[in-house]
């Protein structure tokens, strides 16, 4: 379970988040819906610990993690522009988080294959990042975030910038992946139909 408790954040004089609170029960998906610039991305970065809130608490499975640095939070984050590591190939990217956890090579290989299967890209292990299409890169970014079995998955506009056909296809797939992986998820979007299709609950921000 992820709980956000009275989180406040302002940048200089601009109040972006004002005592925001919500909970996402384990395994469920919450869509945060709102126009651009309303603080959705800031919210995700606060949950991930990339930005500190001025006030308020973030709890993961009933543990207060507000002061825990990002790399110890065990959170998956799919960035809007993926941010795949260009110096590593597909499997190097997916196993990055597993290496951080000290997994043995054999186990990592198994897990990478598992995740590639989950995102529908089996056999992509040795591909270069620069050879991936937009949709493929997004799937690999998703696989990379899910590999270390995060306590919560954060998706920042996961379907923005893809062309229409790909968008609809990936939305169906993403829905399946989220259901299968049973990961507590917060997804940020400005697209109402995306929110309705993917989430169990919707939180509107403005």
């Amino acid at each position: 379970m992820l709980s956000v408790n009275k989180v406040t954040k302002s940048f200089e004089t601009n109040l972006v988040l004002d005592e925001l609170s919500f909970e996402v029960p384990s395994g469920e998906t919450l869509a945060v819906l709102g126009p651009s610039g309303c603080g959705k991305s800031t919210l995700l970065k606060i949950i991930a610990g990339l930005i500190s809130p001025d006030q308020g608490k973030i709890e993961l499975n009933n543990v207060d993690v507000t002061k825990v640095p990002t790399h110890k939070r065990n959170i998956g984050f799919v960035f809007q522009d993926n941010q795949l590591f260009p110096h590593l190939n597909v499997s190097g990217n997916i196993e990055f988080g597993l290496k951080m956890l000290g997994w043995k090579k054999r186990l990592r290989q198994v897990r990478v294959a598992e995740l590639l299967d989950l995102v529908g890209l089996s056999g992509f292990e040795e591909r270069n990042i620069s050879e991936l299409s937009g949709g493929e890169a997004k799937r690999i970014a998703l696989a990379r975030s899910l590999a270390p079995t995060p306590k919560a998955l954060l998706l920042d506009e996961p379907l923005t910038g893809l062309d229409e056909e790909l968008h609809d296809q990936l939305m169906v797939d993403l829905n399946n992946i989220l259901n299968q992986s049973q990961t507590t998820t917060v997804l940020v979007t400005h697209d109402r139909s995306e929110a309705h299709n993917l989430a169990d609950k919707i939180l509107e921000m403005d």
Partner: peptide
């Protein structure tokens, strides 16, 4: 890219 640092951190890299 700045985001690459953040993505490494979310994957558990100090």
């Amino acid at each position: 890219p700045k985001g690459i640092e953040q993505s490494a951190q979310t994957l558990g890299a100090s």
